[in-house]
């Protein structure tokens, strides 16, 4: 029997990852933790803004925690810890994105009951993380005014896969001659209807607005989950 034979496999390449992500998503739902995956280029301001978000949440009595993916150092984890929120670090050893399986290890034994928000600072990269579901409730893409308005058009997959976008470093918009309307148009082009908030880590009001938006989305999510209790059993 040496005739070649074709086998129709029809299998999702991301099967292994997606299954793990689905398990994580169920766990996060069971603890009512809203998990927010932050993605952007390196240097966009994820750590800076997240530190302020965590600080604001701690002040408002919202239980928040963070997991940070970093290629080589624990610098970001140290910065985030200044907010007084619990922070854990995932050293990716050079990997350009986080995967659900890597998260699993760090979430194991971490009792998320009572944690309202868990933030995941992904590895700085606008390409690779877009393909990997982490079981998050929301994916948030950040774009700083120093990067150029055309980035959404250059990385449409990432912007399209996000649930909302944050423009960061708005305090530098003037000196950078940032064209806000063009940036918004470009985001709208690759992800029609997506919410875009303008932020600056130096402007507490803008941080408040982001926190308000997140709290609102979590409420909506909890509301939609609590209605059909049997929906979890569908596969």
């Amino acid at each position: 029997m040496t005739t070649p034979r074709v086998v129709e496999l029809r299998k999702n390449v991301m099967n292994r990852h997606d299954r793990k992500a689905a398990l994580l998503r169920r766990y996060f739902q069971s603890t009512q933790t809203c998990v927010i995956n932050l993605v952007s280029s390196p240097g966009t301001g994820k750590t800076e803004l997240l530190t302020e978000i965590l600080r604001s949440m701690v002040d408002r009595g919202i239980a928040a925690a963070a997991l940070v993916g970093d290629c080589a150092t624990d610098n970001d984890a140290k910065r985030l810890e200044t907010s007084a929120a619990p922070v854990r670090q995932i050293v990716t050893e050079g990997l350009c994105h986080l995967e659900a399986t890597m998260l699993d290890e760090h979430v194991q034994g971490w009792d998320l009951n009572g944690i309202d928000f868990l933030f995941i600072e992904n590895v700085g990269n606008l390409v690779c993380p877009s393909a990997f579901d982490l079981g998050e409730s929301l994916r948030v893409v950040l774009l700083s005014v120093t990067e150029g308005e055309d980035k959404p058009l250059k990385y449409p997959q990432m912007f399209n896969s996000a649930d909302f976008a944050l423009l960061t470093k708005m305090d530098l918009a003037g000196p950078c001659e940032f064209d806000l309307a063009a940036a918004r148009d470009n985001i709208e082009t690759v992800s029609p209807g997506m919410t875009v908030l303008e932020t600056s880590a130096r402007n507490p009001q803008s941080v408040q607005a982001v926190v308000d938006h997140m709290v609102q989305l979590r409420q909506l999510d909890l509301g939609s989950q609590s209605v059909p209790t049997d929906s979890l059993s569908t596969t």
């Binding site: 070649p4 074709v6 086998v7 999702n12 399209n160 082009t189 029609p192 209807g193």
Partner: peptide, 26 residues
């Protein structure tokens, strides 16, 4: 993400996100 005929935004994606192993030959 705009309809080439009508020019309206088209946020609903029906396909193009997947990655599937279709078949292999032994």
């Amino acid at each position: 993400f705009r309809c080439p005929e009508h020019g309206c935004p088209t946020p609903e994606i029906l396909s193009g996100k997947g990655m599937e192993i279709l078949r292999f030959e032994i």
